[in-house]
Design a protein around this nucleic acid. Structure first.
Length: 482
RNA sequence: GCCGGUGUAGCUCAGUUGGAUAGAGCGCUUGACUGUGGAUCAAGAGGUCCCCGGUUCGACCCCGGGCGCCGGCACCA
């Protein structure tokens, strides 16, 4: 692009994007659909500011994540940051307003910011909308079940196709550490490597747990230095394959039969699975995959994530878990909580790739076109009659007087119906309606221009006095006929 | 942060062992058609060949440095 001297080059920050009409309509549809599900579960909305004090955001989710904070300087030099999720602000709110009756169950949809490496093909951006539900002050695992079913219901409502919610438990993974004789303060390191199982496979995970290896580019991946006896025990766990939740639990129950406290943890998951079955959430939509840890440091119990089976490499489109100690940071008191988060912009990219989004570029149902030989006030009258009757109507405001250009304009934005009234129609006290979809279908078949012009597909005249009624009838037909 | 690739028109890309005025397709604009979307035909606009420095009679091309973008890895709330 040529940049003129004295002008500023229009450009976008890395990892951010502009959303035009089709994307905005699709995104709004996703948000409305999720909200519908969440409100059926009785969650109430909460809004919090994009900015928080830096010390609120810091140290909640691991040291590494601090690099991902967008920092902001306040007017009095306060150190601020843009929120990177909605869970930490929620913990702040719960701690700040102790009178809130518990359980506090809220939903929140808003943007968050993370300064990590963007990967737009898989829907990873530096600014993105998340849609969360959380239940704070809840000990019962019924809340965990509710999160999982809400995810399933959300995926179904969004028409994502085949999906699977994978459920795991940090407490079971802690049992694994005990079983393998690994100190629990190494949990973060071990879980990080286990989470890569899907991507790297068994062999590399084993190497990374022990001596490390060199990846394809030759970069050294340091090993964690565990003994082969320890890693053998982890391997036993990783090798488990089950066709159902019950089978997965049976295998772990057997493997951990000597581990103290294992029976109780596994019983908890068994109870959840039973409830899920009773409610109609079978092994096809909810699977227990106990190797999943998820990256967040603040998770303490159940964790889960959702994959789209038609986009196996896309990554998870929503995830969450239990974080019983997060509020403690602000309140000094343990407040158990569980929540889950849908990545709205990720889903937008995924559904786009799957071709599961309707594309809508306009809001108008009708475009009133104009000719020079008819007084403009007559066109205005038509447009306002339609608007007052509740029909979304665009009045052609451009300078292009030639009719062909106006049709092209309407075609470009996908307006379904044009109102046409030149001197001929006016003289007869009529207006012409043009159903754009008819011409769009004809266009593939017509080769000759004069035929194309004379055919005027999808056009018919109605008395001027019946404009509104005729439009409403035509729009109803189009809506019914598809 | 590390490794690799790449940077030429709005987009996708060709090009020159270093030589005069840098090309194609698509898109865009205009006309054929002052009242009809598509197709066709014709014409037109659009370039700091990423930036800075060096070598050279001469650099879009070669050399050095920088930056951007794309992959992979690391990291990931």
């Amino acid at each position: 692009m040529t940049i003129l001297a004295g002008t500023v080059e229009p450009r976008l920050l890395r990892g951010l994007r502009d959303y035009f009409a089709a994307d905005m309509h699709a995104r709004q549809w996703i948000i409305d659909t999720i909200r519908g599900v969440y409100e059926r579960y009785g969650y109430v909305p909460l809004g919090t500011p994009a900015l928080e004090y830096l010390d609120i955001l810091r140290g909640t989710a691991g040291e590494e994540s601090e690099k991902q904070l967008f920092e902001v300087k306040g007017p009095d030099e306060e150190r601020l940051g843009l929120r990177f999720d909605q869970t930490v602000p929620l913990a702040r709110v719960v701690a700040q307003y102790p009178d809130l009756p518990r359980p506090f169950r809220r939903y929140q949809v808003s943007p968050a910011w993370r300064c990590d490496n963007p990967y737009e093909k898989r829907g990873r951006f530096r600014e993105f909308i998340q849609f969360d539900i959380d239940a704070v002050g809840v000990e019962s695992a019924v809340a965990d079940v509710e999160m999982i079913t809400a995810m399933c219901d959300t995926m179904q409502a969004l028409n994502v196709g085949r999906f699977r919610v994978r459920v795991s438990s940090r407490r079971v993974l802690n049992l694994l550490l005990t079983y393998a004789g690994i100190a629990h303060d190494r949990a973060h390191d071990v879980f990080r490597v286990l989470d890569k199982l899907d991507k790297l496979g068994h062999e590399k995970v084993r190497l990374e747990l022990t001596i490390g290896y060199k990846d394809e580019s030759g970069s050294p991946i340091p090993g964690l230095g565990f003994s082969s006896a320890q890693v053998d025990r982890i391997d036993q766990f990783l090798a488990l394959r089950a066709a159902s939740r019950e089978e997965a639990l049976a295998q772990v129950r057997d493997l951990f039969k000597e581990v103290e406290g294992a029976a109780a943890e596994i019983e908890l998951l068994a109870r959840m699975s039973q409830q899920l079955h009773t409610l109609g959430y079978g092994d096809d939509v909810v699977a227990y995959d106990l190797t999943i840890a998820r990256g967040l440091d603040y998770y303490t119990g159940t964790v889960f994530e959702t994959l789209l089976l038609d986009l196996p490499d896309f990554g998870s489109v929503c995830g969450g878990g239990r974080y019983d100690d997060l509020v403690m940071r602000f309140l000094g008191e343990r407040v158990p909580a569980v929540g889950t988060s849908v990545g709205v912009d990720r889903l937008l990219v995924a559904l786009e790739q799957l071709g599961r989004l309707p594309s809508r570029k306009c809001t108008a149902q009708v475009l009133v076109t104009v000719f020079d030989d008819v007084p403009i006030d007559e066109y205005l009258a038509m447009a306002y009659e339609l608007r007052r009757a509740g029909v979304p109507t665009e009045f052609y405001l451009g300078t292009e007087r030639r009719f062909g250009k106006q049709v092209r304009y309407g075609d470009h934005y996908g307006v379904p119906v044009l109102v046409v009234c030149g001197a001929d129609e006016r003289a007869r006290g009529e207006v012409q309606l043009k159903d754009m979809s008819v011409g769009r279908k004809r266009t593939a078949q017509v080769a000759d221009r004069s035929q194309w012009k004379s055919e005027r597909p999808g056009q018919f005249n109605v008395p001027r006095a019946e404009l509104v009624a005729a439009i409403q009838k035509l729009l109803a037909e189009i809506a019914a006929g598809g």
